[in-house]
């Protein structure tokens, strides 16, 4: 048996992973172009339907896209956009911050210990099932006309999402990695930081994604009823003036803003933080 294998490094596959990654990235770029074209087509169709509907409906019920566009531009130019959107954004983030502060520890306990899971499980499930509108009304009753109402509403809506996802993340922790860390004498704190936390991060993103859409709606809704500033407050203002164009313009800006946050901010951040995952490397 004359065998030269020892001198050679382990055999390389026909396509190295670098080449494979280049191919995958090219395919992803092709798909991206296709998706982009369909996205634009979707918007065009939507605007056309709107235009046709505005034309046939009685005058004054539905302004056409151009009128709304002009109104949107006015709002942007007047500076109201920045101040009111900032107000809404800050309230949403504050509420979400509260949700993380409360929901993350609850989720941690639920994921780590079965006793705590039994303790919290029904409460969290019920809290997640209650309609968001209920939270909005409840917050208004508690805080009346103030900025705290929307914050509380957002916190109440988001907390169950955060708790459930963190619990799921903790259960997903690879115990083999924990044992490895202990074998090498790592401290509890190191294990939490290097094993537990990175495992939870993708689940946290999922929590943000899921709760953000709902949280925004509740935030705006609470402002409609009892806000002193913000997007919802402006929508109510326009409504009271019977300015339908204004209502739709604010609504449209709201949608645009949500899309920007979800598509650009959250997704970019996620891609950056989760760069270690193979699927993230191909997608970006």
């Amino acid at each position: 048996m004359s065998n030269p294998v020892i001198e050679a490094p382990p055999t390389a596959p026909a396509v190295t992973w670098q080449e494979g990654e280049v191919l995958a990235r090219r395919a992803a770029a092709r798909n991206k172009r296709k998706r982009l074209a369909l996205l634009v087509a979707g918007w065009v169709v939507l605007l056309l339907i709107w235009q046709v509907a505005a034309y046939y409906l009685p005058f004054g019920t539905l302004p056409n896209p151009l009128e709304v566009g002009a109104e949107m531009w006015e709002i942007i130019a007047s500076g109201a956009l920045v101040s009111d959107f900032m107000a809404s954004v800050l309230k949403t983030f504050a509420g979400f911050g509260v949700a993380v502060l409360v929901g993350a520890p609850v989720g941690y306990l639920m994921g780590r210990h079965n006793y705590w899971k039994a303790f919290f499980h029904d409460g969290v499930t019920v809290a997640g099932t209650i309609p968001a509108l209920t939270y909005a009304v409840l917050s208004l009753i508690i805080f009346g006309l103030s900025n705290l109402g929307p914050v509380l509403a957002v916190a109440l809506v988001s907390t169950p999402y955060v708790a459930i996802n963190v619990a799921e993340g903790i259960r997903g922790v690879d115990q083999q990695l924990v044992k490895m860390s202990q074998a090498f004498g790592r401290s509890q704190q190191q294990i939490r930081r290097e094993v537990y936390l990175p495992t939870i991060v993708p689940y946290m993103f999922a929590a943000v994604r899921m709760s953000f859409a709902v949280a925004w709606k509740v935030e705006a809704l609470t402002e409609v009823f009892g806000g002193t500033n913000g997007v919802g407050f402006q929508i109510r203002n326009e409504y009271q003036l019977f300015n339908i164009t204004g209502v739709i313009a604010w609504m449209a800006l709201f949608i645009v803003f949500m899309l920007i946050i979800e598509r650009l901010v959250l997704r970019k951040l996620e891609a950056k933080v989760l760069a270690w995952r193979p699927e993230e490397r191909v997608r970006t």
Partner: peptide, 19 residues
């Protein structure tokens, strides 16, 4: 160990420095 047991979110070098 039988399997590598590396932290997937850390680079190879950071994995080595971790222990």
């Amino acid at each position: 160990f039988q399997d590598p047991r590396l932290l997937p979110w850390r680079s190879v070098r950071r994995n080595m420095l971790y222990v």
